[in-house]
Each structure stands twice: as C-alpha cells, then as structure tokens.
Amino acid sequence: MDQYQPIENELNSISPLLAGLQRRTVFSVPAGYFDGLADRIMQKIRLLEEGKDTDANELADVAPLLHAMARRNVYTVPKGYFEQTIVQPPARVVSMHRPRKWMRYAAAAALTGAIGTGIFFASRKEQAGDYEKYTKVDVSSAIDKVSDTELVNYLDKNERLTGSVDQTMVTASEELPDLSKHISQYSDEELKEFLDENKDLELVKETPGGE
C-alpha cells in the first residue's frame, strides 16, 4: 500500500535487518479465543452494572453457604441516631503560613548586625585616614608660623586648661610622703623579707647616687 511505503523506506534506512523480517505474530493464542469474546465482555459488563461483580461470583464458587446468607446488619443502633443533626463547632482555621516571631527577631538582628558592621568599617577607614593625615603635619613649623601675640592670647583664653596641668604636677611633688618616716614604721625583718621577695629592686638601691 502506498500509505505504508514511507514506513518501509524509513525502516530500510535505519535497519535493513528488521525491514527484511516477516512481521508475523509469533505468540500463540488459545483456539477460538476471539469467537464470543464480545459476548463474554458484554456479560461481564451486565454483571458489573447489576452489582453482581466477579468478586461476588468468586464467593459463590468458594463458599456457597456464605454467599447464600442474608447480608443484613446484626448490630443495633440507638433509636433515632441517624435523624440527629450533629452540629460540630467550626474547625479552627490554621494558617499554612503562620508568621514566626523568632524569624522576625532573627531578621532584625541580622539587619542590625549588617548595618553595625558597615558603620564600624566605614569609621575605621575614616579614623585611619585622619591619623595618617595628622602624622604628616609638621607641628613645630606650624607653631613657628603663629605669632607670639597670638600664642599669648590663646594661652590666656585657655588658662583653665594650662593651669590645671601645672597644678597637678606641683601637687604631685608636694604631697609625696616622707620616705624615711614611712620606712621607719617597718621592722628590719619585714624590710629584709620585702627585699628578698623583690630582688630586682636591689639594683635601684645599689645605684650610685640613689637614695
């Protein structure tokens, strides 16, 4: 047939071996199988439609007594049970995507951390830049450029600052305790014991000109 010519040609081009084989059915079928098949199928359909399906027929073959018994319920049900309207409370709707608090907190913490880290690195960069800038300033030459009058005016204006530094230094020297008096409070044993425990201080003691 012309319709099948392309199919033959196609097979010849792919596999001449297969194209050369006889396309006959090799499997065997029980004799007369197709005769009456349509009737057998129709009979099965009728049984299914009548509710007498093959499982019921199977029971009749295996256990005829069981198959013949009346299929009625033997259990009793409280009177009017099926007439009762059972009102059930509406089921609680549970959201499939319930927001989780810990996730919110975690997100907030992550965001804060990211911002904080950014600020830290940015400020470090600025500080490092400032430090570098300051190290390059020649302070003495800058001061040389300032006139004496301007320096005096500045010191006058900031007297509190400069005065306090002087006061602190003076106070520190004036208030030092009298060392000889202080040492005399201790016995020779205590002093010896102290020196034994702090041998490295002996060098100071033996330094020429030291008190």
Partner: peptide
C-alpha cells in the same frame, strides 16, 4: 446500544489484543 458495542468489540478486538499482548506477553 448493546448491538453497536458488540460490533465495536468485534471490529477492534484483534488489533487491540495484539497491541496489549506484545506489551504484557502473557495471554
């Protein structure tokens, strides 16, 4: 209805049987 169905089965039973048989092998 039944007569038409019977005719449809008869018309296609062999073709469909062989299509199925080649797949499941066992009769």
């Amino acid at each position: 209805k039944e007569r038409a169905f019977n005719a449809i089965v008869k018309k296609y039973q062999e073709k469909l049987y062989w299509h199925i048989r080649r797949m499941v092998i066992n009769h």
